[in-house]
Design a binder for these strands. Sequence first.
DNA 1: ACATGTTTATTGGTCCGACCAATGGAAAGT
DNA 2: ACTTTCCATTGGTCGGACCAATAAACATGT
Lengths: 245, 245
Amino acid sequence: MSQDFAPIKRKRLSDEVSAQIQVRIASGELRSGDKLPPERELAEIFGVSRGAVREALRNLERTGLIALQAGARGGAFIGQGDPGLIGDSFRNLYQLGSVSLDELTEARLWLASTVVRIACARATDADLAALTANVDEAERLLKARRYDDKIDIHIEFHNLLARATGNAVMAMLMGALMEVMRDFAHAAGGERNDLTIKARRRLLAALHKRDADAAVTAMTEHLESLRGRYRDRMKPHRAKAKGMN
Amino acid sequence: MSQDFAPIKRKRLSDEVSAQIQVRIASGELRSGDKLPPERELAEIFGVSRGAVREALRNLERTGLIALQAGARGGAFIGQGDPGLIGDSFRNLYQLGSVSLDELTEARLWLASTVVRIACARATDADLAALTANVDEAERLLKARRYDDKIDIHIEFHNLLARATGNAVMAMLMGALMEVMRDFAHAAGGERNDLTIKARRRLLAALHKRDADAAVTAMTEHLESLRGRYRDRMKPHRAKAKGMN
DNA sequence: ACATGTTTATTGGTCCGACCAATGGAAAGT
DNA sequence: ACTTTCCATTGGTCGGACCAATAAACATGT
């Protein structure tokens, strides 16, 4: 036993409280819809101040585990999680310089390939209809020169496609990456040509024919060309982080 | 103008504060390593109580945007984000019943296929050496009957492979999914046979030969069989959430 | 001079007690 | 029976106090 004394972890009270509640959730003791005791009671139970309890609850709220609601029948209710947090995480990592734009677009391209292949096999008629409607809408917006609105529709296309895989996790992963893409798509300004529309028409045709290889090709080629254009347009908007160590 | 009066958003002060700070970060005005003014000053600047500022800072800390440090030269420092939060999000979504175990394993399988294909093309000698060392270690633990420790090594294998793609985003995505896998791998108890080891040896051989198809096959077959075994062993550990709307 | 211990100023961490604001149900009035 | 008013409950905010950690400035001893 050379150097393994005590780690000495000065944990914050609020973190201790939120940890205990989280354990109750992980164990299944607390489930979606359940209500926690009021802050004042929790303070007494845990033997800490209401402020500490409050910080714990706010943390859990931020994590999407609970939702706070004021008023008579209000309180802290166990929620269902928030898929949007995944996208937020990536946004932060990008803004803080921990991941690059190039890595994001590359990962997105890889994910999109998988998505389109799976979706090609599983997409329902309703999925295909929604995708078609989406492209129609995008074309309408393009003609109306509403380039900024078009971006959101384009992003929605990828989300629809990901949902067509029938796998919520995959939909969330793609959704997260697309959230970051949204940011700099708006920053870079929307495309004003119809290349995307045409590529999507080809993709839809392949999907209807259940031709996975053609669908993947259509998707990949389009994203590759987009990637090239973005790379030219977006100068790195941040100098490399100077280590804070 | 039929019904578009005022949205009436009763935002919390602390959220308003954290939002303003976040904007400064997004705009690049605040960068990794920068220090925010002390809580008491921020309270005066924003014209709110110190408690409100504190909640805002704790929220940002939870998000990985800042790190709080007590003491004389302490304060709130802009951080670099925390990739672990992505895994936490999925863990929460799973625990709260918003995503199923099956969707997680399926998405993991898809991602792993992509990862192994890319890694096959890009892995450096150092990557391959690390992967080989990992499998050796796993074999050692298996012989020592340290099944629980073996799980973590097995998970590390996937992370190493993902890192071998050279894409940090992909490594984070895989890392996040594997974090959830870790939970129920431990809950289900580690495998006690050497099937995984053998599959990994085949995978490594394919990687060394840069035979992408063989590598993908080795990975996929193994994960598929694992998936089948898990499905038998893990009964859904939670009844379907009764909606709380 | 140098090393070591002590003080002190700074800053996050916690607590208390009070009051405000939202909300739904109970009581009162019609 | 319906509407209005009131009230208890519960989160949201505040101010001020004190504790705890920390590093710099200072004092002390060799």
